[in-house]
Amino acid sequence: MNPTVKTRIKRFTPLQRVFHLFLMLTFLIQSATGLARMFVETSWGRNLGYLFGGYEASRTVHIYVGIIMLCGLALHIFYILFKINWRNFMSSLYGPDSLLFRFKDVRDLFQHVAWFFGLKKAPEFDRWGYWEKFDYWAVFWGMIILGVTGLLLAYQMAASRIMPGWGLNVALWVHRIEAILAMAHVFLIHFFVGHLRRHNFPMDRAMFEGSVSLDATRHERPAWIARLEQSGELDGVLVSEAMTAQRAIHYVIGFAAIAAGLYLFIGALMNVPYISW
């Protein structure tokens, strides 16, 4: 393979990949420490907790990593504010490169489902598919719910000054259900769509390498490529393949994350009957 041939199209900037890597690592730590505490009545949960120094230490790690995640969210919001084109505010917000939902996404969803059953031609996706936009915004909603309830639970004394103590009972259940939803969504749906479906199998390298195959993208996201060709921007965003060693590292990180996620998900499912809620 000639490394100088530009066969790939740039999809994520280095900073966006750093955000994803940060989220991936912190999310896995939060999942592991949270499950270690939830499953402390089982040997699986206790062993998981030992990785972080035990039951109490898992709580400490959970709290500090949670605060770091919230800082990451704040930084990401600043990043968005910086990235918005304030002179063309509306087109920046609702243009094809934006991650905000548009009416086309609803149309794409229905057409895509119809394509599953062979009833319609597949929709011509632009840069971001509706499922990717959902994943992106789910992180916002999840981190706000988990962050607020997590802070209330972490700093109970302070929390009980601004609300009655029984609010902590509510916060605990909201935190739990939202965390279970987030983990199940990431470990089942996000991993499958991003990594294991035939189109991306064995792994979508886009978030690590920053680029995707031009040929594959031309077929999966024809509207994006057509737009770039029409505006003459395509050549400017073409890049060459990463070096073999780099790709190997990407695969190791990606597969390690999938293995960790599946271990947590399957372990939790197997031990659900043995814990008291």
């Binding site: 895509h112 489902v113 394509w115 599953f116 059953f117 031609k121 597949a122 929709p123 011509e124 996706f125 499922w131 089942l188 749906i189 499958f192 769509v193 294991l196 479906r197 035939r198 189109h199 195959s213 040929d215 594959a216 077929h219 999966e220 024809p222």
Partner: peptide, 28 residues
């Protein structure tokens, strides 16, 4: 949605272009 998508992609045909097999076309 995910299950149906996964199943649908198993049954798509691989397109060839100038006698070269390209990546599975999941969409069109």
């Amino acid at each position: 949605h995910t299950i149906l998508w996964g199943i649908r992609e198993i049954f798509i045909k691989k397109k060839t272009k100038e006698n070269k097999t390209i990546e599975p076309d999941s969409q069109n």
